[in-house]
Write a protein that binds this DNA or RNA. Structure first.
Length: 591
RNA sequence: GGGGCCGUCGUUCAGCCAGGUUAGGACGCCAGAUUGUCAAUCUGGAAGUCGCGGGUUCAAAUCCCGUCGGCCCCGCCA
């Protein structure tokens, strides 16, 4: 009994035909003389009718059917009696009058029912992922993921890219995220690392003359998880030779526009807006701004310098800044709500939060209002209106931006400024090359150590490296970092200089990156690339809550798989073979 | 490493603040009835180590301490 159609395709066109369907019992409605079964597969639902008057023995068998039994049925496609059509179902104008039933498998009562508005907790869903995956919502997400991967491959193949697989067992590198390590049995005491990204291999591929490489690449980072972060995730990864920043930006924009158009009929702007890192930090307090609502951070340094409020003036004089938010209609906040806002600001790292209400008649209402001159404030904040609440943070730039950036997001949510139908992609460029790590007294690469400095800034590497900007770019969508890349260093001397600034010794650089340095010495073309987070892209495109919904078998926040119970202990014999001894306090018994 | 929320029949919630009858509802499950339902309906029934351990108390789902697990966030994620 082989199926002739799937469960979502029959309509009035096939009326009268004998068909066979196979799938799961999605619902059973027993009316005594007649039993209705909804049969479900990936493609949809079809109603089956078992009528005791038409076929009594079959009706008796159908009586045994329960939810999620796997069945195949043969019957005649029939028009539903007038008035009993179901307009909510694509197949709702027909039904199958069964004349044969094959019970392929039974199912015990399930821990949760298979429906889109799932009632079960996420941990239960993950434990029984095979049931969760039967939900249409999950099937749609995985289908979307497949569709995006397909479009991506088509797009790159059409543009002469070569899809290349790079090693999963590779070399541990300093810097970056923690590595997942894999012991080498044949090399006792030595370890492979799983790739955090194919970064070095794709550069080597360029030096190997591949010209245009892409890969849908699995990456691994042993860091703590978030709603948009999994320890293993997938990147759309690419690298190109003889290109500049704009080439890559245009190529990727067009791909993203194509994906949104093809899968969701969404038109994204052309070109995407672009902000410098400095502008993004200054206006939104973050390098991944969510621009689905406005509420920009306002600069009040000039005003603060000339006001009578000592707290502000002292911060400015010591090299800090004063910035704020204009909260629309915020003058209506109760004192209690403002106090909560102040508390939150302190949790975010502020020493305090100054505030001023502009009452409906335009008067300033605040305990610190007396320090300010109305007109000066109005000039400094032309966008502030009567009825608004102004809040200020005065501190060093990093703190000011962090606090106001997070307050902005919080208020955007609370005041429902966030328009969930909007799509706001943008590029962030001109990242600084380094941050200074005070604890370890050294520079740290903001992107990675292979990022080329902006040509006009390369001399700054000697004089003032912290001022140097790079040819890196991040793609941001709705407040999530979708991807990032850069034009790479292709000069061995520049690469050595950067390692030097990062305090990576010649010996260590040779040991860890010797192959790259050698490759750079042997005719490396100028090159650059980017990697996009496929899981995050699907999360946004599919408008789902977390990255876990886009991954068939994800890990929990403790990096465990609730279905397989990985990771787990192994036998002492396995460890011995690998020349490994664990120092864990209570190693669970191997099972 | 730190902060917050959550954990009660198979599932999802109420009960906890203010300790005290037999821990309750809905969905699901089981049985019966039912020939036009699609959240089917009606009648009846079964189903709970209140996450786990300890403490306080005459008495703990409820209060206290610890612990385990899930989620969100900070740190971390070149």
């Amino acid at each position: 009994m082989k199926r002739s159609h799937h469960c979502g395709e029959l309509s009035l066109t096939q009326v009268g035909q004998t068909v066979t369907l196979a799938g799961w019992v999605a619902s059973r409605r027993d009316h005594g003389g007649v039993i209705f079964i909804d049969i479900r597969d990936r493609y949809g639902l079809t109603q089956i009718v078992f009528d005791s008057e038409e076929n009594a023995p079959l009706h008796t068998i159908a009586d045994r059917l329960r939810n999620e039994y796997v069945i195949a049925i043969t019957g005649t496609v029939s028009v539903r009696p007038e008035g009993s059509e179901n307009p909510h179902l694509p197949t709702g104008s027909i039904e199958i009058r069964a004349n044969a039933l094959n019970l392929l498998n039974e199912a015990k009562p399930l821990p949760f029912s298979i429906e889109d508005d799932v009632q079960a907790s996420e941990s239960l869903r993950l434990e029984h992922r095979y049931l969760d995956l039967r939900r249409p919502k999950m099937q749609q997400l995985l289908q979307l993921r497949s569709q995006v991967a397909h479009l991506t491959r088509q797009y790159f193949h059409a543009q002469q890219f070569i899809e290349v697989e790079t090693p999963i067992l590779t070399k541990s590198t300093p810097e970056g995220a923690r590595d997942y390590l894999v012991p080498s049995r044949v090399n006792p005491g030595e370890f492979f690392a799983l790739p955090q990204s194919p970064q070095l291999f794709k550069q080597i591929l360029m030096i190997g003359g591949m010209d245009r490489y892409f890969q849908i690449a699995r990456c691994f980072r042993d860091e703590d998880l978030r709603l948009d972060r999994q320890p293993e995730f997938t990147q759309i990864d690419l690298e190109m030779s003889f290109v500049d920043r704009e080439d890559i930006i245009q190529l990727i924009e067009a791909l993203i526009r194509l994906i949104f158009k093809e899968t969701k009929q969404i038109d994204l702007p052309n070109p995407f807006p672009c902000l410098s890192f400095e502008e993004a930090m200054g206006r939104y307090g973050t390098d991944k701004p969510d621009r689905r609502f406005d509420l920009p951070i306002q600069d009040l340094c000039q005003f603060a310098q000339t006001c009578d409020f000592q707290v502000f003036r002292r911060v400015i004089e010591s090299g800090g800044m004063v910035k704020g938010l204009v909260i629309p209609k915020g003058a209506g906040f109760t004192r209690n709500r403002i106090d909560n806002l102040i508390e939150t600001a302190k949790e975010f790292g502020a020493k305090g939060l100054a505030w001023i209400k502009i009452s409906e008649d335009g008067k300033l209402d605040s305990s610190i209002a007396k320090f300010f001159n109305d007109e000066g404030l109005r000039t400094a904040l032309p966008s502030a209106n009567p009825g608004d609440l102004l809040v200020f943070v005065a501190d060093q730039a990093a703190i000011v931006h962090q606090v106001l950036g997070r307050l902005r997001l919080l208020l955007g949510e609370e005041l429902q400024l966030l328009d969930r139908t909007r799509w706001e992609p943008l590029w962030i460029v001109d990242f600084p090359m380094f941050e200074y790590d005070k604890a370890n007294q050294r520079h740290v690469a903001l992107h990675h150590p292979f990022t080329a400095p902006h040509p006009k800034d390369s001399s700054l590497l000697d004089s003032n490296p912290l001022q140097a900007k790079t040819l890196a770019y991040d793609l941001v969508l709705n407040g999530f970092e979708l991807g990032g890349g850069s034009i790479r260093i292709h000069s061995p001397r520049m690469q050595e200089k950067v390692f030097d600034l990062l305090k990576i010794s010649k010996v260590e650089a040779r040991e860890k990156f010797g192959f790259l340095l050698d490759a750079l010495e042997s005719g490396a073309p100028p090159h650059g690339g980017i990697a996009l987070g496929l899981d995050r892209l699907i999360m946004l495109l599919g408008q789902t809550e977390s990255i876990r919904d886009t991954i068939p078998f994800p890990k929990t926040q403790k990096a465990q798989c609730l279905m397989t119970h990985a990771p787990s202990s192994v036998t002492p014999e396995q460890l011995q073979e690998l020349s490994i001894r664990t120092t864990a306090k209570k190693p669970a018994a191997a099972s």
